[in-house]
């Protein structure tokens, strides 16, 4: 007999070793997430995937599924808090969606729409963040980084390199690259690396590909992120998942 947990009252089968996120995705249940990606070790930092397991607050992307778990996911309280956490990510950086090349393909923006976020709620930090356009093929706009570490993990785990890292602490946390000069051009990053394509926001972009897909025809222009995420992440793992 299959082992099961319940999510919002529905029985969801799981296999030993699966996280709540993995069991949910396989069963077609969307749990909002940003730092989770099925091909990389979980990180558990964005806290968008917060669920209640037998009353206790847990991150679905890191918490192992186990018999007897009664999980709350799609509740008003949790979605309200997820919206506030998303708003925190927006005010921490500088996100001008209408002038951002990632608009319509951006997971941060799409999750904000999914959670019905209509304003920023919190005061802005107006953080001073730099751009790094030194590399001939790839650029970094630090204004849009949410420190999900997906580029860090992709570079280490898929590309066999070590191009990105997170440095500093607290609100001064920032993305750095592995070069004495601190510039992307002096790293061994190539545009074909997974790390150059994995960013859920518009922080890492491939040059000279901007607006090849017009606004209005982009991933989340016609579909909500829950539908897209379930379609992409519940299929057997493929080598190439390009959100950009």
């Amino acid at each position: 007999m299959n082992k099961t947990i319940t999510i919002d009252g529905n029985a969801i089968p799981f296999e030993d070793g699966q996280t709540i996120m993995e069991a949910a995705t396989a069963a077609g249940v969307y749990i909002p997430h940003l730092c989770h990606h099925p091909e990389y070790t979980p990180h558990g930092s964005c806290k968008l995937c917060t669920v209640r397991v037998n009353g206790r607050v847990c991150s679905a992307c890191t918490f192992p599924a186990a018999e007897g778990q009664d999980v709350l996911n799609n509740t008003k309280d949790l979605n309200d808090d997820r919206k506030l956490i998303t708003q925190m990510l927006f005010v921490e950086g500088n996100h001008f969606c209408p002038s951002c090349e990632k608009t319509g393909n951006c997971q941060l923006q799409a999750v904000a729409y999914y959670l019905n976020m209509l304003d920023d709620h919190f005061p802005h930090f107006y953080a001073h963040r730099e751009m790094d356009a030194s590399h001939h093929e790839v650029m970094i706009d630090h204004n849009r980084c949410i420190f999900c570490t997906l580029c860090v993990r992709a570079s280490q785990q898929k590309d066999g390199k070590d191009v990105f890292a997170i440095s500093g602490r607290g609100i001064n946390k920032h993305l750095i690259v592995n070069a004495q000069s601190g510039l992307l051009k002096d790293t061994d990053l190539e545009a074909s690396d997974q790390a150059a394509h994995i960013c859920p926001t518009g922080a890492i972009l491939i040059k000279r590909t901007g607006y090849t897909v017009p606004i209005g025809e982009r991933i989340y222009d016609h579909k909500q992120i829950d539908e897209v995420a379930l379609a992409e992440e519940s299929r057997p793992l493929s080598k190439e998942i390009d959100h950009g």
């Binding site: 806290k47 990510l89 420190f147 602490r169 609100i171």
Partner: peptide
């Protein structure tokens, strides 16, 4: 606390600084 936050997770990284503000 805003100074001590390591910045790993969103609620503490951004939250403690928002709380300070």
């Amino acid at each position: 606390f805003a100074h001590e936050s390591c910045g790993f997770c969103t609620p503490c990284r951004v939250g403690t600084s928002l709380l300070k503000k």
